[in-house]
Amino acid sequence: MFWMKLKRIIRTGFFNFWRDGTVSLASVLVMMVTLMVVGLISFSGAILDITLLELRNKIDINVTFVTSAKEEDILNVRHALESLTEVSLVTYVSRDEALTAFKERHSSDQSILSALDELGENPLGAVLNIKARDPSQYASVAEFLEGGNALSSDGITIVDRINYFENKAAIDKLTHIIASADRMGFALTIFLAIISVLIAFNTIRLTIYIARDEISVMRLVGASTTYIQGPFVVVGIIYGITAGFLTLLLLLPLTYWLGSTTESFFIGFNIFSYYLRHFLEIALIIVASGVFIGAISSLLAIRKYLKV
């Protein structure tokens, strides 16, 4: 009995989808717009994540040591820093390496190079470059260094300067921007999602409104709620699946076309290769959203006409 009913409901759903050709086409197109938004939301999420990661990686602080600092003491400081949970990476740049880098940077500026030569000795101190796990944690790293954790064996501080205090304003601002971009992106995503779901819902509601007389007749010949509702839900699911697959197809040329643009705009992010790499995941999100929106819209929209 259950299987007979299910079979009839599914068959009727397919029949109705096919017979209401124009209505089905219109609904699928509207649903495609919705699913396109869902797809773009998952892309923009990835773009935002990657941009933020990129920005975060750009933030660091440099600790410059006095020229007289012993390498052993510096390595002790490095070790202490590495044991902090806030710190993700510490790179040591020795005095010689700092000098080579400096010369390279100013290779075209003859006056600086000759001034260096005149000096005779290396004026640059060794540097520890520190990357924190999160921009907000640089303050505590800087405090850690200030708080007497970077002393030589004789108890004199070996830190020349910490550029955190010079960059503090910029770092704070960036931290702030990152946090609000995260929030804004989230709010925008929710907003777009709600709007597009409402559009799809209203379209399906319209298709059911067209069939309201039929629904009341079905009621009057004694058809049960599930038996009337079922085919409409099946049609909603077919809308979702069809629109889902068409959207996935359409995203191929679209992301391909956008690929080089995104690559130059967001460093190293090619939307097309991202799409191909995450295809299964995105396909699942889009098709499942379509099925869910289609089925729930039908269920909700038809309830009103089942009262007879």
Binding site: M1, M4, K5, R8, M218, V221, G222, A223, S224, Y227
Partner: peptide, 11 residues
């Protein structure tokens, strides 16, 4: 057929 299906009659 719909009326018969609604009444649960067999195919």
């Amino acid at each position: 057929a719909f009326t018969m299906e609604a009444a649960g009659r067999t195919d």
